[in-house]
Amino acid sequence: MAADFSVVLDELDTTLKSIEAVMRVDDLRREVAELEQKAAAPDLWNDVEAAQALTSRLSYLQGDLRRVEELRSRLDDVGLLHEMAAEEGDEATTAETERELQSIRTVLDELEVRTLLSGEYDAREALVTIRSEAGGVDAADFAEMLMRMYLRWAERHKYPTEVYDVSYAEEAGIKSATFAVKQPYAYGTLSVEQGTHRLVRISPFDNQGRRQTSFAGVEVLPVVEQTDHVDIPENEIRVDVFRSSGPGGQSVNTTDSAVRMTHIPTGIVVSCQNEKSQIQNRAAALRVLQARLLVVRQAEQRAEMDALKGEGSSWGNQMRSYVLHPYQMVKDLRTETESGNPSNVLDGDIDAFIEAGIRWRRQQENAELN
């Protein structure tokens, strides 16, 4: 067993060295030190938005640095502890070091996936839009299930989210919803979730208890930053205001605070009704519109409509099936990743699917390069 332990230890050490090289740990330390110095400036919060962006990035980079440094320390320690336990014939400590090595392997695998996020916009926060597609009321219900799944996933990871707009269906579920995941690398991580999701189940809305197949679409966009220069002339935007509505069409408030924004040249329409203030809703709608226009602009520059959406996962392509009847199975149609526990998956346990999707995307990119 000692020989096996040594082999695994060497493999993990090689993997960690590769991760350290990709993450450029020395550069990371320097950037953290620079950001810490800026964060200590007495006038930092004079510009609240800039301060929030700086402290958010600092917190994320500190977390990255801490994870890789802790892994290096754990890997060095477990090797020494195993060696000492073997010399002393301490079987209990030997078993403990073997469990620790497996734990390190799990964390390393997760960190390795993070290093695969090197696309132009992968480090951005994400804007997620979910729409019900074919399947009537079941599709609207499924769209709401997917929205909850992603919000629960973010909650599990303690990622902040903000719901910008929910358009409720008449009978049940939602027609569409847009929300932000305000975490660095949320776009790179969630972009592999983009595409058409399929649900097969006994419809709770069919009084004859028949099996129903329904579809919902997931779109993921990178949040626009100031450096993107997505400027929209005032005369290209039409703004309509209306009262926010909840499930069943009920009015949420008594003022026209909700905002619908139309980009006249492209026909792109976005809305936001989450905030109580019309000004806040207008600002949020503008951010979503800028993100959509950024994707259009990049697509035009690259002469392919799905340039940012990833080969094989573009809007309209089926990418995952959720079967609740006649058997229980969630299966990714690209990576073959499966789970026999749809309840857990729909409760936000989707990390295995996301990680497999990120690895699959990198394989596709490498295949294209070759």
Rank of each mutant, 00 (worst) to 15 (best):
W45V: 05
V22T: 10
A41V: 03
T55E: 07
A50G: 08
V22Y: 05
V25S: 03
D13W: 11
T55L: 14
V32M: 02
I19N: 08
W45T: 04
L35D: 10
D26S: 11
A40P: 02
A41Q: 06
E36A: 06
V22P: 00
S59P: 12
V8G: 01
I19A: 12
Q37E: 07
Q37N: 09
E49Y: 02
A33G: 11
R57C: 04
K17E: 09
L9Y: 09
I19S: 11
D47H: 04
I19H: 08
S56H: 05
A33V: 04
S56E: 10
E11L: 15
A40N: 03
Q37D: 13
I19R: 05
D47C: 03
T15K: 14
V25G: 03
E11C: 13
A50M: 06
S56Q: 08
A39C: 03
D43Y: 01
L16P: 04
L9S: 07
E31S: 03
A51F: 06
L44N: 03
L9D: 01
A51P: 08
D43C: 00
V25P: 00
R24L: 02
D13F: 05
D47R: 05
K38H: 09
Q37M: 07
P42R: 12
D27Y: 00
W45E: 08
P42T: 09
P42H: 11
A41S: 05
E34T: 00
P42W: 13
I19T: 11
A53F: 13
L28C: 07
T15H: 05
A53V: 08
L9G: 02
E31A: 01
L35F: 11
S6K: 13
L16F: 02
T15D: 12
A51Q: 14
L44G: 02
A39T: 04
A51T: 14
V25F: 01
P42M: 14
R29I: 13
A41L: 14
D43A: 07
D47G: 02
Q52A: 15
R29K: 15
S18A: 14
S59K: 13
E31P: 00
Q52R: 15
E49S: 05
V7N: 02
D27G: 01
S56C: 11
L44T: 06
T15N: 15
D10T: 09
F5E: 00
D13R: 15
R57N: 11
R57F: 02
S6E: 13
L58C: 03
V25K: 01
V8D: 13
N46G: 13
L16A: 10
R30V: 11
E11T: 15
Q52F: 10
S56V: 12
V8K: 10
K38Q: 14
L35V: 05
A51S: 14
R57E: 10
D13I: 06
A41H: 15
V22H: 06
Q52S: 10
D47F: 04
A40K: 04
V7Q: 12
E34Q: 15
L54C: 12
E11M: 09
T14N: 10
L35E: 11
A51H: 10
E20S: 04
D43M: 00
E49D: 06
A53K: 07
K38I: 03
A39V: 09
